[in-house]
């Protein structure tokens, strides 16, 4: 599905990713955890193709294709989805027009005609139900005036419509109360199939109570420094990151001396 090799990336001349290696197979859910400033959001932005970041080295293969050479819209068509930590408000663009543009752009990419009006409305209705998104939001501008929970549900709704093969959910749990968290997580779980994968970026264990990961990675100083099974999340919850940081910093120090 996804294979990241020695990925380096910087923003404004500052190197954030310093050699990330990551393999995600079909059907797997990977969690990426790590202290603040370790590069978690940067990794998601680089994978989605945010032009503000510059990839300085490394390769990313996505379903056998070179991901880094694709523009963000092509990455989407090819099956990559990014659920934003801070979904962007777009005043003046209604949710309906936004989704219609997204759906029809994908169809165009695959040589299909635009979707008919009634099919489109039916699709919207079906997908909204997955995250219990209020119908009234459809006529509003994208994310404008949405509550924190509505914005996150809206991300999962868009994911449901676009049916990606790999979803990257960047701190989808931040700013959510328990009920909203449950709805969002259930939405993600409903969309899971043996062929689709997900990368869940989170600070906390609590989201992982709802979305069960197969693999957990710890990102620190722009590298994946620790990989383990689901039990790693609990250990981090109990012991924090300090022990991992200490191990990595010690190893770096030895390398520095050598």
């Amino acid at each position: 599905m996804l294979s990241v090799r020695d990925l380096h990336a910087e923003i404004d001349g500052k190197e954030i990713l310093r050699g990330v290696n990551l393999d995600v197979n079909p059907g797997e859910v990977h969690a990426i955890m790590g202290p603040n400033g370790s590069g978690k959001s940067t990794l998601s932005m680089v994978l989605a193709g945010n032009p503000a970041y510059t990839v300085t080295a490394g390769e990313v293969s996505f379903r056998g294709k070179d991901l880094l050479s694709m523009t963000p819209d092509v990455r989407s068509h090819e099956g990559l989805f990014l659920g934003f930590q801070y979904p962007v408000e777009i005043p003046g663009v209604s949710m309906v027009n936004f989704m219609r543009a997204a759906v029809n752009a994908k169809r165009k990419y695959f040589g299909e005609p635009p979707m008919g009006a009634s099919d489109f409305l039916k699709l919207m209705r079906e997908k909204r139900a997955i995250v219990e998104l209020d119908n009234k939001l459809a006529s509003r501008s994208v994310n404008e005036g949405f509550s924190g929970g509505e914005k996150k549900r809206n991300e999962i709704f868009q994911m449901a419509v676009l049916e990606p093969s790999l979803s990257i959910l960047d701190e989808t749990d931040s700013g959510l109360d328990v009920d909203a968290l449950r709805i969002v997580a259930e939405g993600v779980n409903k969309l899971r199939t043996p062929e689709t994968s997900a990368i869940v970026i989170t600070h906390y264990q609590r989201l992982l109570d709802y979305i069960k990961p197969d693999v957990i990675h710890v990102l620190y100083k722009g590298r994946i420094v620790y990989t383990g099974g689901p039990e790693l999340a609990l250990e981090i919850e109990n012991r924090g990151y300090d022990w991992i940081k200490a191990e990595v910093d010690a190893a770096d120090a030895i390398k520095g001396e050598a």
Binding site: T71, P72, D73, I90, P91, G92, N97, F98, A101, A105
Partner: peptide, 27 residues
């Protein structure tokens, strides 16, 4: 730029996103 990128991650081409944002600007 954030709006443009957000729209592009949903598969909307840059040209189409620019067009929609200009239209929205005049709304």
């Amino acid at each position: 730029e954030k709006q443009l990128f957000y729209m592009m991650t949903r598969g909307i081409s840059e040209a189409q996103a620019r067009f929609m944002l200009k239209q929205a600007f005049m709304s």
